[in-house]
Design a protein around this nucleic acid. Structure first.
Lengths: 348, 348
DNA sequence: TTGTAAGCGTTATCAC
DNA sequence: GTGATAACGCTTACAA
């Protein structure tokens, strides 16, 4: 590197530096480098500008650019818990779409804290994202209010209060849970227990209803003692809930539906500790069909709620919304699909 | 909301708006809201400014602020693969530290593509992060070069070329792998196989050396046929590698060390398909001690390489580096620790 | 097709 | 302790 270049590299090259080198004005540089206006410029100048920019290692200053355009080419992603594979899947899926469009991800795990979620929505513009994907277990009126005055487009993954005028991606988990129950019934299970997560959450309430739907359509009696609620949608709470259920219910259940795969993994371990065989004694079904379902033994039958697909849809909705801020809000979803594995084979 | 407020809310409130309301100058507003200069201002004015700002819903414009200060209060996090629980853990751990300091995360999964990693380093300032944590499987001279001219501080998680003047967090996985072999030897295993990931990567080469170290210190013969390389550090490649190993090696191994937990999960399934019992026929040990190790059956003995701890250290190094750009680069690490679970109990 | 010039909203540096 | 002013680097009417 010679002395001149060294001096130049003390500070980042600006559009002016590039312009000076080519003998044009900075605005011309801007026009060349901006795809929308590039074709306005003569090929000859464009080429020289491009070359000079490369030679100087010129990079657009995102702060200055953003100050003018109020765009950052970043999207925010809020998930309750990055350790839950269902959200990991979603983040991966969103990144895939975002990347194709030259957008980057700002990730934030909220720990399912509604206050944290709200603050992020308020903070939207503050942290300069062009849009936000918010996956939440529990969308309240407070969310809906905050969304109304949001500084950038938001897409929800979850179940917002009725009438929230925001693009939304739904999971039809009620339907999925019902299907799982019917599958267990078809496999000759008659005492089907349910390990749910917190019931004030959207998934908790929907999956509970689905479980009850399933019992009803199979003509099985509703038995409240067969339903147990874990403190959280996680492994250890799932284990403890299953333990409580097993300690309490007589005759013991011959099947357990769990409201997600993490709960099912916990339940599996409780069943094992109780000396019960899966599936011979107790069939087991999870929900979300995360990669975990392939890893347990026996492998876990699980209701696929299309998380990857839903995340992709959310990202695409967001991109469309960023382009057309005024278009009517859409609600889309992905159909559930039962993926049968060894954990609910034939009864002993 | 009355007409005046409604009109105001057409556009975001600026520092000027707040200033006008209080009857001071915009620079005063800036001074009040900036912690570093707040104590310069009289309490009375400060209070009124704070109140007015709240009333108007004033938020600092990050673009304008960044244009002046060149700080965004965001850190970039680059990981090879967000689906690998070891990186999920790291991201969670980094977020914890970042959050305490009011920083947000920009996440990018590179798919272990070196070109993608390099581009992100170049793009550092472009995407306005104040610093970057780069976890890479394979840091090359190209990385070192790019880092030399990086526009913001970088902390590496991995093994850079000798003499790279960059803060680095190391895993002592060579030592960890050796310990695992010694543990298996102590458990009376004498045919210890090794399922490695790609050997041109830093973990691949270190863990291979550790495996060989372990054999040597146990006085076990080095037998190349006991070593098999998977195409990637993932479950399916692990399964296939274990299948190849089992098909080839006679007498069959009585233990398998796998270079990470994902490979071990794949190997477990291959062992099962071969009708072999774990641990009675073959003991199994993974590395990284991810949450997966608790989920398999039997649960997986695994070498804890302190991923959460290392990520925390990386975040802290980065924060210190951002404050003191000139301080000497540090190299830190976390000691490995074998976590024994059912997958390597006594031989049959 | 290109140059000119006016800002975007903040903050550093002077003044007072 | 507070005000005035300029500048950060870019974009975009508008002028030429």
């Amino acid at each position: 590197m010679d002395a001149v270049n060294r001096r130049k590299s003390q500070r980042r090259a600006t559009a002016r530096d590039v312009a000076r080198r080519v003998g044009v004005h900075a605005s011309t540089v801007s026009r060349v480098l901006n795809p929308a206006t590039r074709d306005v410029i003569s090929d000859e100048i464009a080429r020289r500008v491009t070359r000079a920019a490369a030679a100087l290692g010129y990079r657009l200053d995102p702060f200055a650019s953003g100050l003018r355009t109020h765009r950052s080419r970043m999207v925010g992603v809020l998930v309750p818990d990055i350790a839950n594979p269902v959200y990991t899947t979603m983040v991966g899926s969103i990144q895939e779409v975002a990347r194709k469009h030259g957008l980057r991800l700002m990730l934030h795990a909220t720990g399912a804290d509604p206050e944290d979620e709200l603050e992020m929505v308020r903070d939207l513009k503050h942290r300069f994202v062009d849009g936000l994907i918010l996956a939440s277990l529990h969308l309240t009126d407070a969310h809906a209010n905050e969304l109304r005055r949001a500084a950038a487009p938001v897409v929800l993954i979850g179940r917002p209060p009725k009438g929230t005028p925001t693009d939304t991606v739904r999971a039809y988990s009620r339907k999925g849970a019902a299907e799982a129950v019917r599958h267990l019934h078809a496999a000759a299970r008659r005492r089907i227990g349910f390990v749910n997560g917190p019931q004030h959450t959207a998934p908790g309430s929907a999956r509970r209803l689905g479980y009850l739907d399933g019992l009803r359509t199979c003509g099985l009696p509703r038995d409240e003692t067969l339903l147990e609620v874990a403190e959280d949608f996680m492994i250890e709470p799932g284990r403890r809930a299953a333990e409580r259920l097993l300690a309490r219910v007589r005759p013991r259940p011959d099947a357990l539906l769990c409201a997600n795969d993490l709960l099912a993994v916990g339940a599996l371990s409780a069943l094992r500790d109780a000396g019960l065989d899966v599936p011979a004694d107790v069939a087991l079904v999870g929900m979300d069909n995360t990669p975990l379902a392939e890893v347990t033994w026996p492998r876990l039958t699980s209701v696929d709620l299309g998380s990857a697909e839903r995340a992709r849809l959310a990202a695409e909705l967001l991109l469309k919304r960023i382009e057309h801020p005024a278009r009517r809000p859409r609600v889309v979803g992905a159909d559930p699909r039962l993926v049968v594995r060894e954990s609910c084979g034939a009864a002993a």
